[in-house]
Amino acid sequence: MGESSELRRWDEMIPDALGLIFSYLSLQDVLTVVPRVCKSWGGAVAGPYCWQEIDIEEWCERSKPELISRMLQLLIPRSSGSIRRLSVSSLPNDPIFRYIANHVSSLQTLEMPRSEISDPIVEEVAGKFSNVTFLDVSYCVKIGARALEAFGKHCKALVGLKRVMHPVEVAEKVCQDDEAHAIASTMPKLKHIEIAYLLLTNVGILDILSQCRELRFLDIRGCWDVKLKENFLKEKYSGLKVLGPLIVDSYEMNYWDECSNYSDSSGYLSWEFMDDVVGEYYDGFSDDDDDDGAWDDGQGLEGLEVRFYGGGFNGGSAGFDWPTSP
């Protein structure tokens, strides 16, 4: 057999293998570079193989709210219902959360910190997240015990919860033991809980400890009214690791400069939807729409412009100061 017959052509690889390879590339490369290489690669990134895990959390932190909705409408349909992990940030409203719920029946990990979602919408659609095992609703200031209870009642397999807040966001609240009670009463299988800076007391924490018997990690940094003795915890919950409450962390220094996970010293990426182009491909997603207005995958990227700006991504100005286009 000749040497040439033993060589495999990249464009002849099966789509799921290509999808696995492309998953190591950046989002902008997958969306704008790979499809232009060849027809088979374009088909792979247009199908579900690349989109079983969608992580655009960092991109969301740097984008305008209306673009976040449009990007999700572009990417989620590509998964064909097979998406297992969705990591976003700053969802702008309830309708886009409803849209997500209607298209992610196989979802196992849902991370959506800093999202502008409400208790009523969570109560409405939580049943569609029944397969979720890890949930991150940190810094979601418009939800409370009602939303947590709704998630807990429907996400029976939930083993990880992240509900971290910023001290400023809870400054006007008196007590959030109701959230602790919602966690304790509806999420008994939790093994990992992060609830730093919630305004909790011993009552709320003991409620969680008594009901979540499989708990192995509990983050209560900044929960200053929790005063449980170390000996008590070691004796009653020997297999539990507790972080806090008396730990000086970056919130006591500078929130934006030290706490942001989105710092980048090499410049940052801005995605802009040009009005004159988007109008041709975007059917119009409004606050009143549920599922309509999804992009045509074959053409939607033509309305997407990728630009790099020098000078670095400074957490202190994240989302507030947009540089002038070159």
Rank of each mutant, 00 (worst) to 15 (best):
A184K: 02
S185K: 11
S185P: 04
S185Q: 10
T186R: 09
T186C: 07
M187A: 01
L190P: 00
L190Y: 03
L190V: 10
K191H: 08
H192I: 11
I193K: 06
E194G: 00
E194H: 06
E194M: 09
E194S: 10
A196E: 06
A196P: 02
A196I: 02
A196L: 05
Y197Q: 07
L199S: 03
L199I: 12
L200E: 03
N202W: 11
V203N: 06
V203K: 15
G204M: 11
G204T: 07
G204D: 03
G204P: 05
I205R: 04
I205E: 07
L206E: 12
L206H: 06
L206Y: 07
D207H: 11
L209T: 13
S210V: 02
C212Y: 03
R213C: 10
R213Q: 14
E214K: 06
L215K: 02
L215H: 03
L215A: 01
L215P: 02
R216G: 00
L218S: 08
L218I: 12
D219K: 00
D219L: 00
I220V: 13
R221F: 06
R221N: 05
G222W: 02
D225F: 04
D225V: 06
V226M: 07
V226H: 00
V226A: 04
K227E: 15
L228K: 00
L228I: 15
K229I: 03
E230T: 14
E230S: 13
E230M: 13
F232H: 11
L233K: 01
L233C: 00
E235F: 11
E235I: 08
S238Q: 11
S238E: 13
S238C: 08
G239T: 14
L240E: 01
L240M: 06
V242F: 01
V242I: 15
G244W: 09
P245K: 15
P245N: 03
L246C: 04
I247A: 07
I247W: 06
I247L: 10
V248R: 11
V248S: 10
D249R: 05
D249M: 01
D249E: 12
S250A: 12
S250V: 11
S250E: 15
Y251M: 03
E252L: 08
E252K: 10
M253Y: 10
M253V: 13
M253R: 15
N254S: 13
N254H: 14
N254T: 08
W256P: 08
W256L: 12
W256I: 11
D257R: 14
